Structures are given as C-alpha cells and as structure tokens.
Amino acid sequence: MTGPIAILSLRVSGQSLAIAQTEVIEVLPVPRLATVPEAPEMVTGAFRLGAETVLVIRLATLLGLTAQPEGDALYHHLLLLPARDGAARLALLVDRVTNLHRIEPTLLPAGHSFNDCVTGDVQIDGAVVPLLAVARLLTAKDLAFAEAFALRAEARGV
C-alpha cells in the first residue's frame, strides 16, 4: 500500500473514473475551441493559454467509450496536463470533475490493462472506481499525431 493520495473523481460518458491530482496541473472550464483540420477523432480542438497552444483530447474517445457525454457541455471540464519537454501541451476533456478525495488506492499488477493505463482501484462513495495513469493513456502513435497537429495549430496561430 502507498498510503492515501489526492484523487480527482471524474465522470466520462456515464463512467466514474479517478486520476491522481499530481497528474493534473489545473482543472479548467472548456473555452471556445478552434477546429484542428484533419485531426484524428480523439482531438476535439485547440485553444490558446497564454503563449501556448493546448490540444484538447476527448478522454472518452481514448478509452473507447461510446455513450453520449453527460450533462450540458457548458459544464464540462478540461484537465490541463503537465508540459513535456518539447512536446505539445495537452488537456483531457471530461464530462465533469466531481470531487477531490484523499484515498488510499489498491494497486493493480502490471499487465492488468492496456498499456497499464489503469494502475489501481479506489473506493468512492461505496463504488470501486478505476484509477487511471494519465501518462499511459496515450500511445506513442497517439502522441506523434497530437504533436504533429499541435505544431500545425501553433503555426496557424490558433
């Protein structure tokens, strides 16, 4: 066991999910997004945050969830991810960040999920909720696509 950690609980296409707070820089409201031409399905759009272009990726699409998003899009959230050296700035689009908890996760063995993107489970309001590892959600191919589209968006001055 690792001891209690700060966990963000999320709703994504009818599913309850969790992410360690340390993997997210900030929770933001969804601004007006510019379309990124020829973007893969996972890319919802892009926006400017100061001098940076942030590429928005729909978490439901990454996870293969097909249910409609919950609630009014006006209340959806972006999870701004830490900048990676020389890489595109990314944000994950979720239906809602519902709460911040301090919980001890039950860790899962390696190989339990695709690319080990589920690292454990947490108990939230009596339900077992998967704990996602943000760094493992995107494959190398996804990151290459995201990087190429972010560079084009940057060049266009999105």
Rank of each mutant, 00 (worst) to 15 (best):
A73L: 03
H77R: 11
P69H: 06
E154S: 11
A34P: 05
H77N: 12
D72A: 10
E23N: 15
R96V: 09
R32N: 09
I57M: 09
L10I: 02
R32K: 03
T98S: 03
V36I: 07
G86E: 12
L132K: 07
V128N: 09
T139F: 10
R136N: 15
E26V: 05
D85F: 10
L108S: 10
A87D: 03
I103S: 06
T53L: 13
L132P: 04
L55N: 08
E147T: 05
T66C: 05
A140C: 05
A39F: 09
V43T: 12
G111Y: 00
A88E: 14
D142F: 09
D125H: 06
R136K: 14
V36N: 01
T22S: 12
E52H: 13
G157M: 07
L65H: 06
G14N: 03
E104F: 08
G120C: 00
L107M: 14
R152I: 12
A155H: 02
A88C: 11
L92T: 00
A46E: 04
G14S: 07
A67M: 14
L62Q: 13
V128H: 08
F47M: 04
A146L: 14
Q21D: 05
I19D: 00
T53E: 15
G111I: 00
R96A: 10
H101E: 07
T66R: 06
T53I: 09
L55P: 13
P105Q: 04
R48V: 01
T66N: 09
G71W: 08
V122S: 07
A155K: 06
L78F: 08
D121K: 04
D121E: 15
A34L: 06
L33C: 09
A150S: 05
I25W: 04
P82S: 02
V30N: 14
R11Y: 12
L143D: 08
E70P: 01
A51I: 13
G71T: 13
L81D: 03
T44G: 06
P31E: 04
T61S: 12
T139C: 12
T66M: 06
D142S: 03
D125T: 07
A140R: 04
P4R: 02
P105G: 05
D116A: 11
A140I: 15
A46R: 07
L49N: 06
R156A: 15
V128K: 10
E70A: 10
A73P: 12
S13T: 01
A18T: 00
L59S: 10
P105H: 00
A34V: 05
A153D: 10
G157A: 06
S16H: 13
V128R: 14
G64N: 01
T22N: 07
S16I: 03
E52R: 14
L100I: 06
F47R: 02
A18E: 00
V134D: 00
L49P: 04
V94I: 07
I5A: 11
P105L: 05
D125G: 11
A110W: 10
R156L: 06
